[in-house]
C-alpha cells in the first residue's frame, strides 16, 4: 500500500511541480507591469478595475476582460489614477462615457429604487404574515381557555338538567 502511494507520488510529482510553476506564472502574468508612485494608488487601481464593468462583455469586470474596450478602460484608469484622481472622479469619468452600466454599484434612482425597496417590502410582508398568524394562534388559545363565568353558568345548567331529570324519572 505504502509502495503504491510512493509510486503514485513519484509519478505525479513532476506534474505537481509543473502545476505549481503554472500558477506562479499565472500570478505574475495577472500583475501587469505598471509602475505606481505608492501602494495606495496601486490599491485604488486594483479596486477600480475590479469594480468597473466591461461594457462589451456579459458580466465581466475590466480587470478580467481582454476586450479592446476593457484594455482601453484599464489604461485610462491607470492614467487617471496617476494624475491623482480619486475613486469617484474616475468612476464619474467612465460613467460620462459608458453610462451607469459601467459601474457594478447602481445609483439610487426612481428606476432602481426597487433594488433596495423590494427586499424591505418582502421582509415587511413576511413580518405581517407572521404577526397575523401569531394573533390568530393567540385568539384560539384564549377561546380555548375556560371562562369562569361561562363555567359557572354551565355547571348551573347541568345541575338544573340533572335535577329536572331526577324529578321526571319515577323512583
Amino acid at each position: 500500500m505504502r509502495l503504491k502511494m510512493q509510486l503514485l507520488l513519484g509519478a505525479f510529482s513532476p506534474l505537481l511541480f509543473a502545476l505549481f510553476l503554472c500558477s506562479a506564472f499565472a500570478a505574475t502574468a495577472a500583475e501587469e507591469l505598471l509602475p505606481f508612485q505608492d501602494a495606495r494608488q496601486e490599491a485604488l487601481y486594483r479596486e477600480l478595475t475590479a469594480e468597473l464593468r466591461c461594457p462589451k462583455c456579459q458580466n465581466q469586470n475590466i480587470a478580467d476582460s481582454n476586450a479592446v474596450v476593457a484594455v482601453d478602460m484599464r489604461e485610462k484608469t491607470y492614467q487617471l489614477v496617476q494624475q491623482g484622481q480619486n475613486k469617484e472622479q474616475v468612476i464619474d469619468y467612465m460613467k460620462q462615457r459608458y453610462g451607469d452600466f459601467v459601474h457594478y454599484q447602481p445609483p439610487v434612482q426612481w428606476s432602481t429604487i426597487w433594488l433596495w425597496l423590494a427586499p424591505l417590502l418582502l421582509l415587511a410582508a413576511l413580518f405581517w404574515v407572521m404577526l397575523q398568524k401569531q394573533q390568530k394562534a393567540q385568539q384560539l388559545q384564549q377561546t380555548d381557555a375556560v371562562d369562569p363565568e361561562l363555567e359557572q353558568k354551565l355547571q348551573a345548567m347541568i345541575k338544573q338538567a340533572m335535577a329536572e331529570k331526577s324529578s321526571k324519572e319515577p323512583n
Binding site: 461594457p55 462589451k56 476586450a67 474596450v69 478602460m73 485610462k76 462615457r97 459608458y98 453610462g99
Partner: peptide, 8 residues
C-alpha cells in the same frame, strides 16, 4: 471612440 462610449 472612447469619449463616445463605443464598445466595438
Amino acid at each position: 471612440i472612447f469619449d463616445l462610449g463605443v464598445t466595438g
